[in-house]
Computed example of a mutant assay.
Amino acid sequence: MYFLEPLTPSLLRHEPLVAGGPAPVGTLFVLGQDGGYAATPHPARTLVLGRNSPDVHVTVGSEDWYVSREHATLRCARDGRWTLRNGGKLPIRIPETPALLHQHEAPVPCGYTPLYIQGSRLHVVELLVSAGPRGAGEVRPGTGTRDLAWPLSDRERLVLVALFQLHLLRADDAHPLSWNETARCLNEVPGQRGWNDRKAEHAVDGVRKRLAAAGVGGVTADSAPADAIKRNLLRVLVDTATLAPPDLRLLDEGVDSPRRNEQSGVVR
């Protein structure tokens, strides 16, 4: 198995290399806030997730008493497929499937899957099962990773995460929040205060204008109906992995957490 550093980019945005090259088919990547592991498929191989940092592979909720010491186990079957088992008291939410309850199991699909555990705050764990390297003529091990994400300031990212949080959670009734709801959410974020609907909308307007200037359509009033602008903006940000489920941590931790400050500055 291979350790993933705490500052490893979101698995939605980037598939890490394994031993200096593309990952073999079926390789499982698991990434939490404090790093994670990559494990090539091997029968009976297991990775454990939970609160008890010394005895688990991936730490989840180290200071959250509602998260179990060993909350979940990922196990590889003989056919190379991975299974997730919930050994904790809290359910594990997996998008587009019923919540995984205590002692229940579910297969881990190929591709990207975020896991959500709601304790005293929201915990996000990323899973990625690799489909294997692309054709040799397309990408070589030494080829730089392409990033489609649009640049955002910390302030903009925080507002967009608040605005589209239900979509990032993949809630059944997902919809963008209103500007008033967004402002109320922002004022509850650690270190944030003084937000109102106009400030929230103004921050997003700056993103929409930059996208429009770069040739992105449907994100301004002159290119789409008013009720479609937020939906079009969301599609652009999600399709380019500009926003990803781990960004939801900003709403619980703010931007002054040590890990966040290593990656960017504070919201101003």
Score class of each variant (00 low, 15 high):
R193V: 09
D55M: 10
I92F: 02
V161K: 00
R51C: 04
D55I: 09
P43F: 03
V204Q: 00
R69Q: 15
L169Y: 04
Q165A: 14
A131L: 08
F3N: 02
N261R: 15
R51K: 11
L84Q: 09
I229P: 04
A162C: 10
V67Y: 13
E201N: 06
I229R: 01
P6M: 02
W65Q: 12
I117F: 04
V56S: 04
P43S: 11
V129A: 14
V216M: 03
E5G: 06
L31E: 10
A44L: 14
A200W: 15
P16D: 02
Y37S: 07
A72M: 08
R268G: 13
Q118P: 03
E262M: 07
T83K: 03
V204N: 06
H57D: 15
H102F: 04
T220V: 11
V108K: 04
H71L: 14
R193N: 11
D34K: 14
P22Q: 11
R45M: 09
D79R: 00
G111H: 01
T46A: 15
G191A: 07
R13V: 13
L49F: 15
S223M: 01
G36E: 12
A19I: 00
A214S: 14
V161S: 01
A214Y: 04
L160S: 07
P24I: 05
G88E: 09
F29Y: 15
G50A: 11
G50R: 07
L158F: 07
W150F: 15
G135V: 04
D247Q: 07
G20F: 10
A214T: 03
A149L: 05
A19M: 07
V236T: 05
S68T: 11
G35S: 09
L166D: 13
D34M: 12
L152Y: 01
Q118S: 13
H57T: 14
A19K: 04
D55S: 05
P9C: 08
R75F: 05
W179L: 04
T8K: 11
A183I: 04
S130Q: 14
W179G: 06
R93Y: 07
A200C: 12
P6W: 01
L148N: 05
V207C: 05
G80T: 01
V60K: 15
L148M: 07
L122Y: 11
A149G: 10
L90D: 08
T113P: 01
L168F: 10
A224C: 00
W150T: 09
T182C: 10
L163C: 02
L31M: 03
S10V: 07
G119Y: 02
P6F: 12
E126T: 11
L243E: 06
V129S: 12
D247E: 13
P54H: 07
Y112W: 05
K209P: 04
A241G: 02
E253M: 08
E201V: 02
L158K: 12
R210I: 00
V204F: 01
L90S: 04
V159S: 10
V266T: 14
E181F: 02
N261D: 08
R235F: 09
W150S: 10
A77I: 03
G218Y: 00
H102M: 05
A38V: 08
D205G: 01
K199R: 14
L28D: 01
D64Q: 10
E105C: 08
P54N: 03
D227C: 00
D55P: 00
E188L: 14
H202R: 15
R259P: 12
G132V: 13
L243Q: 03
T240V: 06
T8H: 11
Q33G: 08
